[in-house]
Design a binder for these strands. Structure first.
Length: 291
DNA sequence: CTCCAGGCGG
DNA sequence: CCGCCGGGAG
């Protein structure tokens, strides 16, 4: 038994969240911006940042002409600031090589910095209504449960599930609504932790039918954060975002006193990533300050 | 502790 | 394929 498109899309019509990037008049570029921000980041944290962002930089050329440092500051504490850098680069590529127009073909979208298998299809589908499978963590979980009767996605590879979802896609123009509904169901009903099966719109679910069997744990063990280089990088970036002028090394050193070697490694990695630059007098600043 | 509209480099 | 890339909320 497969997922019935009609009952899912009908539910979507009345239960969909009123997210800002779904409003009328939102452009393909602005949808692309939302997809960058939503990579591994919950909707609630993205919404306010996205609203400020698209008001300030509504188009690819507007974004490309901003300084990298301003982009990193506007990104704020969304996390994974390399995404902000890639978004900036993506705007530059679109402005210089695509005549300011976001590509509508998956193959072309995939050539853009920061655009992978999910984001390319999400833009083609939600910005251009293309009939392409859109597979994110929500879709994988919903399909694993409703179709395969499993507690969660079997393999750690999302790409492998593309063919699965392709087979589920409606043949007509309702495909984008179907994909949006699949994602919405996973985000709000068929959640990872405590799925609300009592309000699920699907009349058949293989997982429910099988009595909600437990899985064998997550496909990939959750990664730690506390004490990692990522936490140190986050603290360093926090100091640099807050300062409009380059800061002394000593101001950075105080954010992580317990392990100087780790702190040095984190700072070096930020330099290597092109997120931070060192000035001629040895101080540090966000990369691309003023230009 | 877990999870979150992933992508990339090794 | 594997490990790393933030940070906040439940």
């Amino acid at each position: 038994m497969s997922i019935v498109s009609d009952e899912l899309v009908n539910w979507w019509g009345r239960a969909r969240r009123d997210l800002p990037w779904r409003a009328p008049g939102v452009t393909a570029w602005q949808i692309l911006v939302s997809e960058f921000m939503l990579q591994q980041t919950p909707v609630a944290r993205v919404a306010p940042i996205w609203l400020d962002w698209v008001a300030r930089w509504p188009t690819p050329p507007a974004t490309a002409s901003a300084s990298a440092a301003d982009v990193l500051r506007a990104w704020g504490k969304l996390g994974y600031p390399r995404r902000a850098k890639r978004l900036h680069e993506c705007a530059t590529v679109i402005a210089t090589e695509h005549d300011d127009v976001v590509p509508d073909e998956v193959d072309v979208l995939l050539t853009l910095p920061g655009v992978g298998a999910y984001t390319a299809r999400a833009v083609a589908c939600f910005a251009y209504q293309k009939r392409v499978p859109v597979v994110d963590t929500n879709v994988r979980r919903v399909v694993a449960r409703a179709v395969h009767g499993l507690a969660g996605a079997a393999s750690p590879s999302a790409v492998r599930d593309l063919a699965d979802v392709e087979a589920l896609l409606p043949a007509d123009e309702s495909a984008p609504a179907f994909s949006a509904a699949l994602m919405e169901l996973g985000a709000t009903v068929c959640t990872a932790r405590s799925p609300k099966c009592g309000i699920c719109p699907l009349t058949f679910c293989a997982w429910r039918a099988a009595g909600h069997p437990a899985g064998s744990g997550p496909a990939r063990p959750a990664q730690r954060y506390a004490g990692t280089d990522r936490q140190v990088r986050g603290r360093l970036m926090d100091v640099l975002r807050a300062s409009s002028a380059p800061v002394l090394r000593a101001h950075l050193d105080v954010v992580w006193l317990s392990d100087p070697a780790q702190r040095d490694r984190a700072l070096d990695s930020l330099l290597v990533d092109g997120l931070v630059e060192q000035t001629a007098d040895g101080r540090f600043a966000l990369a691309g300050e003023g230009g």
